[in-house]
Design a protein around this nucleic acid. Structure first.
Lengths: 214, 214
DNA sequence: TGACTTTTTGCGTTGCACGCAATAATGCAA
DNA sequence: TTGCATTATTGCGTGCAACGCAAAAAGTCA
C-alpha cells in the first residue's frame, strides 16, 4: 500500500474504469439515444474492449445507470440504525442506493439520462427490488428495536418489513417520476430537496387514503 | 359472420395462434427451463415460424406469460365501476390482467411457470406498471364518484390514484410471491382464494404500520 | 527480479429482435 | 364462384447483446 486512499492500485483502477464506462455510457445515451448507443461505441469511448465492458456491467442499462454492485453492498453495510421515521429513512436509503456509483461520485449525468429515459427508473427499481431480501432484513431489524413493534414476533416483523419496503419503493418511484417529468425551469441545483418533500406528501396522502377507505 | 362467437375467422385464428404459442412457450419453459427454451423451439412446437412468433409476442417472457395486448385492453375497457373497497377492486383487476391471455383461457401453466420462475412475476408487474396511465385514470374515476373524495380536485384524484395503484401493485406482488413460494401441499385447487385473503391482510398490516409510524 | 494472481483482450458462439419483400390465407362484393 | 383488397405468414438477412474460453498483459508481493 503505497498510497493515501488505503486501496491498492488494482482497486483504484477498477473503480476508475467502472466510472469511465458509466460516464461514456450515460453521455452516449444522451447524445445518440439510449438504443442507438451500442456497447461497442461505449467501450470505444471508455477505452476498453467490449469484452471488458461485460466484466463490469451485465447490461447496457446498468452501465448507463452506473449500478455498481460493490458500491451498493458498501451502502447496505453502512446502514445500521434508523433514528427518524422509517419511511423517511427508507427514502434516504433508496436514493443513496440510487446514486451509488463506482467512484462514489454522484453524477448529474445519471439524473439527466433518467429524465430523458424514464424507463430506466423502472429498471433501477427492479434492481433495488432484487435487494429485497437484504433490505427487508435490515428493516425488520429496525422494527425489532422499535418499542411500537415490541410485542410482535420476528416473522411478523419480516412480513411488515416487506410491505413497508414495497410500498416505499413504489412511492419513491412515483415521486421520482413526477420530479423527473416536472419541467421545473425556475429552480436550480438546490431543487434536489424537492423529491424528499414530495415523498413525504405522498406518504401522508397514502395514510389519508387508507383512513378514508376503512 | 357465419359463426356463433361474433368474431371473424381471422380474429379467432389469431387468438388461437396466440394461445398455441403461449402454451408451447410455457410448457417448454417448464420442461427445459426458462433460459434453455429458445424461441426456435417454441415456434417449432407451436407450428409457426420464428418470425411469426415475433408477430405475436415481443419477447420470450411475454410469450411464456401469455400477455396479450388485445385481451388486456378488453379487460381495461370492461372495468367501469367500483362497488366494493378500492384496494380489493384493484386486486381483482390486477389479477384479471394477470390472467388475461389470448383465448381468454386461464391456464394453470402460467401459474406453474411463475411458481418455478418468480422473476416472471416482476416482469409481469413491470408490464402492468406500463399501464400506469390508463389504470390510474380509471382509479381516479372511481375516486371522483366516491363521496369520501368529493371535496378534492381532479388533479388530486390523479395523484392519489397513482399512489393507490403503486401501493396495490407492490402489495399484490408481495402477496403473489409469498403465495408462489408457499409449499402449500395440503390445499388443492380451491387454494386460489388464498391470495385474496393474504392481500387483504397485507393491506390491513399496511394500515396498522402507517398508524404506528405517525 | 521472478513467481503469483488478477485483469484485459480477442475470438468465437448462441440467441434475441426485427426490417423487408415475397407468398399465402382470408374477407368481401359482384 | 370468382376476382380483388386486406391481412398474415414466412424466409432471408442484419445488428446487437451476452458470455465462454484461453492467451497475453498488468499488478502484487516476496
Amino acid at each position: 500500500m503505497n498510497n493515501s486512499s488505503g486501496l491498492g492500485l488494482r482497486e483504484r483502477k477498477r473503480a476508475r474504469t467502472s466510472e469511465v464506462i458509466h460516464i461514456a455510457a450515460a453521455e452516449l445515451a444522451l447524445e445518440r439515444g439510449l438504443d442507438a448507443a451500442t456497447i461497442e461505441m461505449i467501450s470505444d469511448r471508455a477505452g476498453v474492449s467490449t469484452r471488458t465492458f461485460f466484466n463490469y456491467f451485465p447490461t447496457k442499462e446498468d452501465a448507463v445507470l452506473g449500478i455498481d454492485e460493490v458500491a451498493v453492498s458498501a451502502e447496505l453495510d453502512r446502514v445500521r440504525g434508523c433514528d427518524e421515521d422509517v419511511f423517511l429513512a427508507l427514502f434516504d436509503l433508496i436514493t443513496a442506493l440510487f446514486e451509488a456509483t463506482g467512484g462514489g461520485i454522484k453524477s448529474d449525468l445519471k439524473r439527466d439520462v433518467i429524465r430523458k429515459y424514464p424507463q430506466l427508473m423502472t429498471r433501477q427499481m427492479v434492481r433495488v427490488a432484487e435487494l429485497e431480501d437484504r433490505l427487508s432484513a435490515i428493516i425488520a431489524g429496525w422494527l425489532a428495536k422499535d418499542a411500537r413493534f415490541a410485542e410482535q414476533s420476528e416473522a411478523e416483523h419480516l412480513d411488515e418489513a416487506r410491505i413497508i419496503l414495497g410500498v416505499s419503493l413504489a412511492t419513491v418511484r412515483i415521486t421520482m417520476k413526477k420530479w423527473a417529468s416536472d419541467p421545473d425551469p425556475t429552480t436550480g441545483p438546490p431543487a434536489s430537496a424537492a423529491p424528499r418533500e414530495t415523498y413525504e406528501r405522498a406518504i401522508a396522502t397514502l395514510r389519508t387514503v387508507l383512513e378514508k377507505l376503512t
